[in-house]
Design a binder for these strands. Structure first.
Lengths: 371, 371
DNA sequence: TTGTAAGCGTTATCAT
DNA sequence: ATGATAACGCTTACAA
């Protein structure tokens, strides 16, 4: 593979001039530039980014560390990050931790040694934990989706509290009295915020929460399935379930089916995060949708802003609104044993909550309208 | 951030010795090694991979270029690649092309400039196209999922022909006479092989194929939806549809629902590739499953083998067997308007076809057992 | 507008 | 077993 010297020789200039052409420096003679560009063409020269990074101390690369690459929420976030990064000439390392703090640590060491310019991370839990490796090494960082305690750093997330409250309000408005919640890991801010939203909605309706109706596990289908079995084995008779994310909802659907119950006839279900094709495969599933793509874009923009300026900015926290999508369909077009005609899902969209937390200022929550 | 010189000074040795310790060279005194390791600890030293790559001419990184990161098939392939790579100390750049040859070209240029040691790619079409950039630059390459004409290069794919034939045989065994196929892009070998499998199964059953029943589009839900509408608008009355991949199947489900028809009552559906939770959300959906994870692992192993040996090997082609998962459930546990009790999906698993093509040898197909 | 020289942090080579 | 030196390919700083 040819190098910058080869190009310089071919064009009859110094390597510096070639470098200037490559980097679109203004002070290059037009004719010279043409000669260099022709030489580049002729040799099929491709700049060596490795050498460039070593000298310039910038790799023009970011890392995106996320917990579950099989979840459409996260792939959408990733697309947002990637598009925004690419617009600014950055490439993105995608790192999948499987919600595993050990894997996360391995990736943190990896990105540190690869000298990425910045990191966007959804930490495996809310404690600073091994994330402080980034602070210690002074690597520009944006936290997505979750809060971390103990480090004031840029963050972007969806409004978990407002979305959860809106979902539960919706269930209450349908007349449900015994609403269970299958949540995620205790140490995770999203799980905590969603539980808080659930509790708040109950309280606002003067309904006393029953601790036995709240199950905590992981943000995974298997966990949702397990906890649903646990829930339904007890004598609590919930009429509705709030799943703290889409993966958990899948587990709930599985377990409910295994127990011979039907959704939504025997038990209603709502969840956080949507599925791509939910409106056709799960036409009964009311969801709170986070603007996943925008979360990615915002995170990348905050990060690039920090990388490309020298001055130190205050930490910025962006909380994006969550949309409620209300679906209910009692006959499905997929199967209805009694041969009734197609009933399309009834879909409604309502804003949930918009919050932009500025530095050193309390979150100001607008109202949630569950329709 | 401290450098290798800082460590050397702290430990009272030369940088070369530190380098030897870092690379586990055998010829280092035990006491010296300890001193160096302590210095590394004390300084929190992390080797600069950029500098290492520049000097050693190896980045210990791979690129995985794939067409659709939102498809579970591809995320599973990615996990296989990543696990295998990580085991050998390599990291992976994930590049999502959206089946777009222009994006693919951009990524090819990117990975060339980043000097990745090797590339695993599912090309956007079967022509060599811009993939030959890799050959020209002499970058180790493995093609996954698809064949390319015009370049003899290592490849790993699932048995599209055998899987398709098994699926259509299954439909035929259920008595279907008019079987439609919604396929992918004409230039793609997977689409072509699956059409070939479809045609072969019909022929083997002495059924004449009807060209109007074969629709070609993209490997996307939107395309599947569109083509299904097209299909059902004509007066062809198919009793079954074979979707060439999972995304297309989603589109078929959507369109069929929109037209007021029910699956599988009014029209049966089978598809290539599975969904994670299909057995619960789509209990009627018989599928041909490719061993996605193994495809990833195999691709990475072929690639690493090529990178880490000096000798030139003949091109190797690995074709992995496809499994048929037979599901049929007429009442769903999700919705059944007449209140019947739960009916769990009936699931059967049968091998489809096992082929390992060695260089310069025709594929040898074993029999497909549709049940 | 162009060029010279130095250096980024590491490893390859050769010497001791 | 350890070290001195050069080199990887590029960009920065300075000079012309």
């Amino acid at each position: 593979m040819s190098t910058i010297s080869d190009v310089a020789r071919q064009a009859g200039v110094s390597t510096v001039t070639v470098s200037r052409v490559l980097n679109n420096a203004p002070n290059v003679n037009h004719a010279t530039r043409n000669r260099v560009e022709r030489a580049i063409q002729e040799l099929g020269y491709v700049p060596n980014v490795v050498a460039r990074s070593l000298r310039s101390k910038r790799t023009r690369s970011l890392a995106l560390i996320l917990p579950d690459i099989t979840n459409p929420f996260w792939t959408t976030v990733a697309r947002g990050v990637e598009d925004a990064a690419q617009n600014s000439g950055y490439s993105v390392f995608l790192c999948n931790t499987d919600e595993n703090c050990t894997k996360q640590l391995r990736y943190l060491e990896l990105v540190a040694s690869r000298r990425v310019d910045g990191v966007i991370i959804a930490p495996c839990n809310s404690n600073v934990g091994n994330v402080n490796l980034l602070r210690d090494r002074d690597i520009a960082t944006v936290i997505v989706d979750r809060r971390v305690e103990g480090w004031e750093v840029d963050s972007v997330r969806g409004d978990s509290f407002g979305g959860a409250r809106a979902l539960v309000r919706h269930l209450i408005s349908l007349g449900h009295k015994r609403i269970a919640m299958i949540s995620g890991p205790g140490g995770t801010s999203t799980a905590e915020d969603r539980v808080a939203g659930y509790l708040t909605a109950l309280m606002e309706a003067s309904m006393a929460p029953d601790p036995r109706l709240i199950k905590q596990g992981e943000f995974r289908a298997a966990s949702g399935e397990h906890l649903t079995h646990e829930l339904l084995a007890e004598d609590l008779n919930p009429t509705a379930v709030f799943a703290a994310n889409n993966a958990i909802a899948l587990g709930v659907i599985k377990a409910v089916g295994q127990r011979g119950l039907r959704i939504p006839h025997d038990i209603a279900l709502v969840c956080f995060d949507d599925f791509d094709e939910a409106s056709h495969l799960l036409p009964f599933l009311t969801v709170a949708v986070q603007p996943a793509y925008d979360i990615g874009v915002n995170a990348a923009q905050l990060l690039l802003g920090r990388i490309e300026t020298t001055q130190t900015l205050e930490p910025r926290h962006v909380v994006l609104p969550t949309r409620l999508i209300i679906r209910h369909s009692c006959g499905s077009h997929l199967h209805d044993g009694n041969g009734s005609r197609l009933s399309l899902p009834v879909t409604g969209v309502a804003p949930a909550r918009v919050v932009l937390v500025k530095p050193a200022q309390e979150a100001e929550s607008s109202e949630a309208y569950a329709r």
